[in-house]
Amino acid sequence: MSVSPPPFSSTSDLTPDATKPRWGTRWLGPLVLLGPAGLWLLLLLVLPTLVIFQLSLVPNIRPGDIVNPSGIDNYLLVFNPTNFRVIVRSLGLAVGTTLLCLGLGFPVAYWIAVLAPKRWRNLLLLGFILPLWTSSLLRTYAWITILRPTGVLNSILSTIGLPTLEILNRTPAVLVGMSYSFLPYMVLILYSSLEKLDRALLEASADLGATPPQTFWKITVPQALPGIAAGSLLVFITSLGDFIDPELLGGASSMTVARLIYNQFLGQTQNWGFGSALSVVLIFAVSLSIALLLKYGDSSATQR
């Protein structure tokens, strides 16, 4: 927001300062535009994060204790073998979910964006996003119905004479549930990336002698790389922090960071300091991956 000087001004107003917008007007615009959301973020995101960071430095704190920062004991606890194994398992689950979503989502997004008739595209996308409109809790319960020992999946398997599967309360069930939850996000992001793909590039590749598979790996995938990175990161982060799917589908065997944190605050083990330290580590890991993406994304953007 800049204020132009009045059309007729006396000579005394023609000092350099008089033509510059005043301090108040210069900051009023940004303040009005960013103020409400900024305040919201400050009160509900920045301050709580700082509180969590402070709590993470207090060992063995329980509700009602006096907060008195005194060291990094909680962080040492995070990296003790038992808890570290939980972190590694969570990372593994998140990576697995990401790969599953990418593997399942790319062909779908490619088909909708490149191959399907144009007038169907919005409808097809809508069909894919539709599951997002139902409650995630409901969707997860639906998976329990499907995957439980006497559930839909096993009755189909036994009807056609195949051995039944015991996957509920195990890692595969968590992977299935999380992939199902996050696949629409992956498809949406990949779609928006592939939709921008210039068909002339594919024709140019064919023109230069590349077979369709060569064109796919040498042109389509590199062109969609920003979308692949963004979609993968989103799915990775959300599945790393997912609580409902591991809780309801994973059973006791697949403890994840999210559940571990939950237990420190609301579960039986109640250790706010340890829970905060776990949260800080999780926030750090997520921030790091976002930073990596931004850096990678930036360098690829300047090269283009």
Partner: peptide, 20 residues
């Protein structure tokens, strides 16, 4: 014969250079 097996090469209208 598909385009990738034709002995012809094209200069495209907007060049269609591979920007990566």
């Amino acid at each position: 014969v598909p385009p990738h097996r034709r002995p012809a090469n094209t200069v495209f209208q907007n060049y269609a250079l591979f920007d990566h």
